[in-house]
Design a protein around this nucleic acid. Structure first.
Lengths: 145, 145
DNA sequence: ATAAATAAAGATAAAAATATCTTTTATTAT
DNA sequence: ATAATAAAAGATATTTTTATCTTTATTTAT
Protein backbone atom coordinates (compact mmCIF):
# COMPACT_ATOMS: atom_id res chain seq x y z
CA UNK A 1 0.00 0.00 0.00
CA UNK A 2 1.26 3.43 -0.89
CA UNK A 3 0.49 6.70 0.78
CA UNK A 4 -2.67 7.17 -1.31
CA UNK A 5 -5.37 4.70 -2.34
CA UNK A 6 -5.10 3.15 -5.78
CA UNK A 7 -8.15 5.16 -6.75
CA UNK A 8 -6.32 8.32 -5.79
CA UNK A 9 -3.18 7.30 -7.65
CA UNK A 10 -5.17 6.80 -10.85
CA UNK A 11 -7.00 10.07 -10.24
CA UNK A 12 -3.77 12.00 -9.89
CA UNK A 13 -2.23 10.49 -12.99
CA UNK A 14 -5.44 11.13 -14.90
CA UNK A 15 -5.69 14.81 -14.02
CA UNK A 16 -2.05 15.29 -14.98
CA UNK A 17 -2.72 13.58 -18.27
CA UNK A 18 -5.88 15.53 -19.01
CA UNK A 19 -4.18 18.79 -18.09
CA UNK A 20 -1.28 17.97 -20.36
CA UNK A 21 -3.32 16.75 -23.31
CA UNK A 22 -5.94 19.45 -23.37
CA UNK A 23 -3.76 22.44 -22.54
CA UNK A 24 -4.50 24.03 -25.90
CA UNK A 25 -8.18 23.13 -26.15
CA UNK A 26 -9.76 19.86 -27.19
CA UNK A 27 -10.78 16.86 -25.17
CA UNK A 28 -9.35 13.49 -24.40
CA UNK A 29 -11.46 10.33 -24.19
CA UNK A 30 -11.50 7.76 -21.44
CA UNK A 31 -9.94 5.02 -23.57
CA UNK A 32 -7.10 7.29 -24.49
CA UNK A 33 -6.55 8.40 -20.90
CA UNK A 34 -6.63 4.85 -19.55
CA UNK A 35 -4.10 3.69 -22.12
CA UNK A 36 -1.88 6.72 -21.53
CA UNK A 37 -1.63 6.25 -17.80
CA UNK A 38 -1.84 2.46 -17.81
CA UNK A 39 -4.96 2.11 -15.70
CA UNK A 40 -8.04 -0.12 -15.96
CA UNK A 41 -10.44 1.68 -18.27
CA UNK A 42 -13.76 1.00 -16.58
CA UNK A 43 -12.43 1.69 -13.16
CA UNK A 44 -10.91 4.96 -14.27
CA UNK A 45 -14.23 5.88 -15.87
CA UNK A 46 -15.87 5.69 -12.47
CA UNK A 47 -13.17 7.81 -10.92
CA UNK A 48 -13.50 10.49 -13.57
CA UNK A 49 -17.28 10.46 -13.25
CA UNK A 50 -16.76 11.36 -9.65
CA UNK A 51 -14.12 14.02 -10.32
CA UNK A 52 -16.47 15.45 -12.89
CA UNK A 53 -19.34 15.69 -10.38
CA UNK A 54 -16.97 17.40 -8.02
CA UNK A 55 -16.01 19.79 -10.80
CA UNK A 56 -12.33 18.98 -10.73
CA UNK A 57 -12.43 17.92 -14.35
CA UNK A 58 -14.99 18.77 -17.00
CA UNK A 59 -16.52 16.56 -19.63
CA UNK A 60 -18.81 16.55 -22.64
CA UNK A 61 -20.58 13.56 -24.10
CA UNK A 62 -20.98 12.65 -27.73
CA UNK A 63 -18.70 12.73 -30.75
CA UNK A 64 -15.49 14.65 -30.11
CA UNK A 65 -16.45 14.62 -26.49
CA UNK A 66 -14.19 13.70 -23.64
CA UNK A 67 -12.56 15.20 -20.60
CA UNK A 68 -10.80 18.51 -20.24
CA UNK A 69 -9.97 21.16 -17.67
CA UNK A 70 -10.39 24.90 -17.76
CA UNK A 71 -7.74 27.28 -16.52
CA UNK A 72 -9.38 27.55 -13.12
CA UNK A 73 -9.10 23.81 -12.68
CA UNK A 74 -5.55 23.72 -13.98
CA UNK A 75 -4.52 26.04 -11.19
CA UNK A 76 -6.13 23.97 -8.47
CA UNK A 77 -3.76 22.54 -5.90
CA UNK A 78 -3.17 18.83 -6.03
CA UNK A 79 -4.50 18.65 -2.49
CA UNK A 80 -7.99 19.21 -3.92
CA UNK A 81 -7.75 15.99 -5.90
CA UNK A 82 -6.42 13.99 -2.97
CA UNK A 83 -9.11 15.33 -0.70
CA UNK A 84 -11.87 14.70 -3.24
CA UNK A 85 -10.83 11.06 -3.57
CA UNK A 86 -9.33 9.99 -0.25
CA UNK A 87 -10.87 12.57 2.03
CA UNK A 88 -8.88 14.69 4.38
CA UNK A 89 -7.97 12.05 6.93
CA UNK A 90 -4.51 11.87 5.48
CA UNK A 91 -4.05 15.52 6.41
CA UNK A 92 -5.82 15.44 9.74
CA UNK A 93 -6.02 11.85 10.97
CA UNK A 94 -4.06 10.25 13.79
CA UNK A 95 -1.11 8.10 12.78
CA UNK A 96 -2.33 5.38 15.11
CA UNK A 97 -5.94 5.65 14.00
CA UNK A 98 -7.23 6.96 17.29
CA UNK A 99 -10.50 8.80 16.77
CA UNK A 100 -10.07 11.32 19.55
CA UNK A 101 -6.37 12.05 19.19
CA UNK A 102 -5.70 15.77 19.48
CA UNK A 103 -3.24 18.14 21.07
CA UNK A 104 -5.37 17.90 24.21
CA UNK A 105 -5.32 14.12 24.32
CA UNK A 106 -2.49 13.11 22.04
CA UNK A 107 -1.20 9.72 21.00
CA UNK A 108 2.51 9.14 21.55
CA UNK A 109 3.27 10.03 17.96
CA UNK A 110 1.09 13.09 17.77
CA UNK A 111 3.72 15.77 17.50
CA UNK A 112 6.22 13.83 15.44
CA UNK A 113 3.52 12.89 12.99
CA UNK A 114 2.09 16.37 12.74
CA UNK A 115 5.28 17.55 11.12
CA UNK A 116 5.09 14.88 8.46
CA UNK A 117 1.43 15.51 7.72
CA UNK A 118 1.98 19.22 7.55
CA UNK A 119 4.82 18.85 5.12
CA UNK A 120 2.68 16.60 2.95
CA UNK A 121 -0.20 19.03 3.02
CA UNK A 122 2.09 21.97 2.39
CA UNK A 123 3.57 20.19 -0.61
CA UNK A 124 0.20 19.24 -2.06
CA UNK A 125 -1.28 22.68 -1.63
CA UNK A 126 1.71 24.46 -3.08
CA UNK A 127 1.67 22.45 -6.27
CA UNK A 128 -0.95 22.84 -9.00
CA UNK A 129 -2.36 20.28 -11.40
CA UNK A 130 -1.26 22.24 -14.43
CA UNK A 131 2.25 23.15 -13.46
CA UNK A 132 3.82 19.96 -14.78
CA UNK A 133 2.72 20.33 -18.38
CA UNK A 134 6.04 21.72 -19.53
CA UNK A 135 8.15 18.84 -18.27
CA UNK A 136 5.60 16.33 -19.52
CA UNK A 137 5.92 17.95 -22.93
CA UNK A 138 9.67 17.69 -22.79
CA UNK A 139 9.45 14.04 -21.85
CA UNK A 140 11.28 14.68 -18.61
CA UNK A 141 8.52 13.16 -16.50
CA UNK A 142 6.15 10.30 -17.23
CA UNK A 143 2.68 9.03 -16.36
CA UNK A 144 2.86 5.33 -17.13
CA UNK A 145 5.16 2.49 -16.10
CA UNK B 1 -7.77 5.68 5.02
CA UNK B 2 -4.90 6.99 7.05
CA UNK B 3 -1.25 6.91 6.19
CA UNK B 4 -0.90 3.35 7.51
CA UNK B 5 -3.18 0.33 7.18
CA UNK B 6 -5.54 -0.42 10.05
CA UNK B 7 -3.45 -3.49 10.76
CA UNK B 8 -0.40 -1.28 11.14
CA UNK B 9 -2.23 1.20 13.35
CA UNK B 10 -3.24 -1.60 15.73
CA UNK B 11 0.30 -2.99 15.59
CA UNK B 12 1.83 0.34 16.56
CA UNK B 13 -0.58 0.91 19.39
CA UNK B 14 -0.01 -2.65 20.60
CA UNK B 15 3.78 -2.42 20.69
CA UNK B 16 3.55 0.86 22.59
CA UNK B 17 1.18 -0.76 25.05
CA UNK B 18 3.30 -3.88 25.49
CA UNK B 19 6.43 -1.80 25.92
CA UNK B 20 4.72 0.35 28.51
CA UNK B 21 3.10 -2.47 30.45
CA UNK B 22 6.04 -4.84 30.59
CA UNK B 23 8.82 -2.33 31.13
CA UNK B 24 9.65 -3.82 34.51
CA UNK B 25 9.19 -7.49 33.65
CA UNK B 26 6.00 -9.49 33.38
CA UNK B 27 3.72 -10.13 30.44
CA UNK B 28 0.48 -8.76 29.16
CA UNK B 29 -2.24 -10.95 27.64
CA UNK B 30 -4.05 -10.43 24.38
CA UNK B 31 -7.41 -9.65 26.02
CA UNK B 32 -5.80 -7.00 28.15
CA UNK B 33 -3.95 -5.48 25.23
CA UNK B 34 -7.02 -5.41 23.01
CA UNK B 35 -9.08 -3.72 25.70
CA UNK B 36 -6.32 -1.25 26.49
CA UNK B 37 -5.89 -0.05 22.93
CA UNK B 38 -9.52 -0.47 21.89
CA UNK B 39 -8.93 -2.95 19.08
CA UNK B 40 -10.76 -6.14 18.00
CA UNK B 41 -9.27 -8.94 20.04
CA UNK B 42 -9.11 -11.74 17.48
CA UNK B 43 -7.78 -9.49 14.80
CA UNK B 44 -5.09 -8.13 17.07
CA UNK B 45 -4.16 -11.69 18.02
CA UNK B 46 -3.32 -12.38 14.39
CA UNK B 47 -1.26 -9.24 14.16
CA UNK B 48 0.73 -10.09 17.26
CA UNK B 49 1.25 -13.66 16.05
CA UNK B 50 2.92 -12.14 13.05
CA UNK B 51 4.98 -9.63 15.01
CA UNK B 52 6.04 -12.48 17.24
CA UNK B 53 7.23 -14.55 14.26
CA UNK B 54 9.15 -11.54 13.07
CA UNK B 55 10.64 -11.21 16.53
CA UNK B 56 9.43 -7.70 17.14
CA UNK B 57 7.54 -8.82 20.21
CA UNK B 58 8.05 -11.93 22.30
CA UNK B 59 5.48 -14.23 23.83
CA UNK B 60 5.05 -17.20 26.10
CA UNK B 61 2.01 -19.46 26.29
CA UNK B 62 0.32 -20.83 29.33
CA UNK B 63 -0.64 -19.42 32.70
CA UNK B 64 0.97 -16.06 33.36
CA UNK B 65 1.97 -16.06 29.73
CA UNK B 66 1.48 -13.20 27.35
CA UNK B 67 3.45 -10.75 25.30
CA UNK B 68 6.50 -8.75 26.25
CA UNK B 69 9.56 -7.12 24.75
CA UNK B 70 13.18 -7.33 25.72
CA UNK B 71 15.43 -4.30 25.82
CA UNK B 72 16.73 -4.97 22.33
CA UNK B 73 13.19 -4.80 21.00
CA UNK B 74 12.34 -1.75 23.05
CA UNK B 75 15.10 0.14 21.30
CA UNK B 76 13.96 -0.83 17.82
CA UNK B 77 12.92 2.06 15.62
CA UNK B 78 9.22 2.35 14.89
CA UNK B 79 10.09 1.99 11.23
CA UNK B 80 10.72 -1.71 11.86
CA UNK B 81 7.12 -2.19 12.92
CA UNK B 82 5.73 -0.28 9.98
CA UNK B 83 7.92 -2.17 7.55
CA UNK B 84 7.05 -5.54 9.12
CA UNK B 85 3.35 -4.86 8.70
CA UNK B 86 2.92 -2.61 5.68
CA UNK B 87 6.16 -3.32 3.85
CA UNK B 88 8.50 -0.65 2.70
CA UNK B 89 6.46 0.73 -0.18
CA UNK B 90 5.47 3.69 1.98
CA UNK B 91 9.16 4.59 2.17
CA UNK B 92 10.12 3.77 -1.38
CA UNK B 93 7.00 3.67 -3.54
CA UNK B 94 5.88 6.22 -6.11
CA UNK B 95 3.18 8.66 -5.02
CA UNK B 96 1.28 7.93 -8.22
CA UNK B 97 1.76 4.18 -7.97
CA UNK B 98 3.96 3.90 -11.03
CA UNK B 99 6.02 0.73 -10.83
CA UNK B 100 9.05 2.04 -12.66
CA UNK B 101 9.19 5.54 -11.24
CA UNK B 102 12.77 6.50 -10.39
CA UNK B 103 15.11 9.43 -10.64
CA UNK B 104 15.89 8.20 -14.16
CA UNK B 105 12.28 8.06 -15.25
CA UNK B 106 10.40 10.11 -12.70
CA UNK B 107 6.73 10.86 -12.32
CA UNK B 108 5.81 14.54 -12.07
CA UNK B 109 5.71 14.38 -8.30
CA UNK B 110 8.90 12.41 -7.85
CA UNK B 111 11.08 15.04 -6.25
CA UNK B 112 8.40 16.76 -4.25
CA UNK B 113 7.26 13.47 -2.85
CA UNK B 114 10.72 12.24 -2.04
CA UNK B 115 11.05 14.95 0.56
CA UNK B 116 7.87 13.89 2.29
CA UNK B 117 8.76 10.21 2.27
CA UNK B 118 12.22 10.93 3.54
CA UNK B 119 10.92 13.00 6.39
CA UNK B 120 8.50 10.23 7.31
CA UNK B 121 11.23 7.63 7.19
CA UNK B 122 13.62 9.83 9.13
CA UNK B 123 11.00 10.37 11.79
CA UNK B 124 10.15 6.67 12.10
CA UNK B 125 13.76 5.57 12.25
CA UNK B 126 14.74 8.20 14.79
CA UNK B 127 12.05 7.17 17.23
CA UNK B 128 12.09 3.96 19.25
CA UNK B 129 9.24 1.81 20.48
CA UNK B 130 10.25 2.20 24.09
CA UNK B 131 10.91 5.89 24.27
CA UNK B 132 7.33 6.85 25.02
CA UNK B 133 6.97 4.88 28.24
CA UNK B 134 7.61 7.84 30.46
CA UNK B 135 4.87 10.04 29.03
CA UNK B 136 2.47 7.08 28.93
CA UNK B 137 3.18 6.59 32.63
CA UNK B 138 2.48 10.23 33.30
CA UNK B 139 -0.79 10.05 31.39
CA UNK B 140 0.37 12.70 28.97
CA UNK B 141 -0.24 10.51 25.95
CA UNK B 142 -2.86 7.84 25.29
CA UNK B 143 -3.42 4.65 23.32
CA UNK B 144 -7.18 4.39 23.11
CA UNK B 145 -9.98 6.67 21.94
C1' DA C 1 0.16 -36.66 35.67
C1' DT C 2 -3.67 -33.47 35.29
C1' DA C 3 -6.11 -29.38 34.68
C1' DA C 4 -6.14 -24.66 33.56
C1' DA C 5 -4.43 -20.85 31.06
C1' DT C 6 -2.74 -18.79 27.12
C1' DA C 7 -0.84 -17.99 22.51
C1' DA C 8 -0.55 -20.29 17.77
C1' DA C 9 -2.70 -22.01 13.95
C1' DG C 10 -6.39 -22.92 10.93
C1' DA C 11 -10.86 -22.01 9.01
C1' DT C 12 -14.57 -18.97 7.93
C1' DA C 13 -17.10 -14.53 7.45
C1' DA C 14 -17.98 -9.69 6.57
C1' DA C 15 -16.76 -5.36 4.71
C1' DA C 16 -14.27 -2.40 1.71
C1' DA C 17 -11.58 -1.55 -2.31
C1' DT C 18 -10.78 -2.53 -6.92
C1' DA C 19 -12.40 -3.97 -11.40
C1' DT C 20 -15.67 -5.12 -15.18
C1' DC C 21 -19.83 -5.26 -17.89
C1' DT C 22 -24.39 -3.40 -19.49
C1' DT C 23 -27.75 0.10 -20.19
C1' DT C 24 -28.97 4.93 -20.49
C1' DT C 25 -28.42 9.74 -21.64
C1' DA C 26 -26.46 13.64 -23.96
C1' DT C 27 -24.14 15.50 -27.93
C1' DT C 28 -22.59 15.87 -32.58
C1' DA C 29 -22.50 15.17 -37.46
C1' DT C 30 -24.98 13.76 -41.29
C1' DA D 1 -34.79 13.31 -37.75
C1' DT D 2 -31.30 9.70 -37.54
C1' DA D 3 -27.21 7.41 -36.55
C1' DA D 4 -22.94 7.41 -34.33
C1' DT D 5 -20.16 8.61 -30.47
C1' DA D 6 -18.87 9.17 -25.87
C1' DA D 7 -19.64 9.88 -20.97
C1' DA D 8 -23.01 8.79 -17.04
C1' DA D 9 -25.31 5.61 -14.46
C1' DG D 10 -26.44 1.20 -12.79
C1' DA D 11 -25.44 -3.55 -11.83
C1' DT D 12 -22.33 -7.24 -10.90
C1' DA D 13 -17.88 -9.55 -9.93
C1' DT D 14 -13.36 -10.09 -7.93
C1' DT D 15 -9.77 -9.20 -4.71
C1' DT D 16 -7.98 -7.49 -0.52
C1' DT D 17 -8.51 -6.05 4.04
C1' DT D 18 -10.53 -6.48 8.29
C1' DA D 19 -12.79 -9.37 11.64
C1' DT D 20 -14.39 -13.59 14.05
C1' DC D 21 -14.67 -18.31 15.53
C1' DT D 22 -12.73 -22.99 16.44
C1' DT D 23 -9.15 -26.16 17.30
C1' DT D 24 -4.40 -27.17 18.63
C1' DA D 25 -0.04 -26.76 21.01
C1' DT D 26 2.60 -25.08 24.86
C1' DT D 27 3.39 -23.76 29.49
C1' DT D 28 2.42 -23.41 34.37
C1' DA D 29 0.56 -24.65 38.74
C1' DT D 30 -1.40 -28.12 41.41
Amino acid sequence: MGMFSKTCEYALRAVFLIAHRTADGGRVGIKDIAASIDSPEYFLAKILQDLSKREIVQSVKGPNGGFYMDSKNLSRPLADVVEAVDGNSIFTGCALGMPECSSNKPCPLHNNFMNVRNQLQQMLTSVSIGQFNEELNLGITHLKR
